[in-house]
Amino acid sequence: MLEAISEFGNVAQSSTGGTLTDPSAAAALAVGLAALGAGYAERGIGSAAVGAMAEDESLFVNGLILTVLPETIVILALVVVFIV
């Protein structure tokens, strides 16, 4: 996960010709990073949710909702795409 981020940074830096000065490229990067963050958050929540469900099946709905909550970050990041 963390290695992926630094790799991401490397790619962003090494792309010469000012790719990141292009607004839509920067927006795409923002969405991508937000998705990465959401994925990391969901990893923890998801495994806890599955653990709770294994003990008590009635927790399925709660677990599902809590697991996808970090997705809102990605949706908010998507707003940026429409603004630029």
């Binding site: 495994s47 806890a48 653990g51 709770a52 294994a54 008590d56």
Partner: peptide
Amino acid sequence: SNPEYVVARVRARR
């Protein structure tokens, strides 16, 4: 390690 999973199960059992 996966503390989230184990903690969730253990809390339910508690």
